[in-house]
Amino acid sequence: MDTLLPQLFAGLSLGSVLLLAALGLALTFGQMGVINMAHGEFMMAGAYTAFVVQGLLGDPGASLLVALPLGFVVGGVLGLVLEATLVHRMYHRPLDTLLVTWGVALLLQQVARDVFGAPNIDVAAPGWLSGAVTVAGVALPKTRLFILALAVVCVAALAFALRATPLGRRIRAVVQNRDLAEASGISSRGTDRMTFFIGSGLAGVAGVALTLLGSIGPTLGTHYIVDAFLVVVAGGIGQIKGTVVAATALGLMQAFFEYSTTASVAKVLVFVVVIAFLQVRPQGLVTVRTRSLA
């Protein structure tokens, strides 16, 4: 029992990190079908945004609060530029998009290396996030609790945006039937851009959050991108719900496997479980019924 709780928390915490990383993908990949390999680099950009803001403002607390929205904007603008220059001309070639965005990812990494240097750097966490809360004898670091809360807020905000705002309705309309949406006067170009902006912005937020967990470097994104995609695939595309469940499940699995084996074996086991799961449900956890693919 006394081992269960720490693992549970570790799993949930890891799940929340995965969720933050995957949430934007659930939009760009899930809703638009764009495999954006530079998503990890947008996270990296968010992390460096936090670094720069802290350099300017000094106070870790204030800079975190500034960096979160600013990271969103930085990630979003990067996404917007990517969409407008490359991705939009490749909607009919999803696999090629994957490779092109990978090229962009390489470029962004090298830019970060040339601007900020190759070695990892640290961003100080605010004082009010240092230390831990003790629950039932288990110390829960406040930074991890903060990220958990942040993930919940992001999911709620996104769900609200998709369900209750005009933009959300337009996004869903375009996803369900691009031609019909256009025929009824929805600008699918505008909607695509907006979707990409939000999805990439969420990557930026995730990047800011990651500075709370450790040092950051130019290859930060590559550590998360594979897992993030795995989450979206396992969760099933088209619905945020699936992503949330999958992120939590993968986080918990990783934590519990890690407890009984090693971190690397746990990774492989998680991969095997996902493959096995896709045998049962090739479309992931949650699926939307659509009649046709076209």
Binding site: H92, L95, I237, V288, T290, S292, L293, A294
Partner: peptide
């Protein structure tokens, strides 16, 4: 290769 939609295999792909 891949359909332009995000929906992967299985989802009544025959329709394509």
């Amino acid at each position: 290769t891949a359909p332009p939609s995000p929906v992967p295999a299985g989802a009544h792909t025959g329709r394509t």
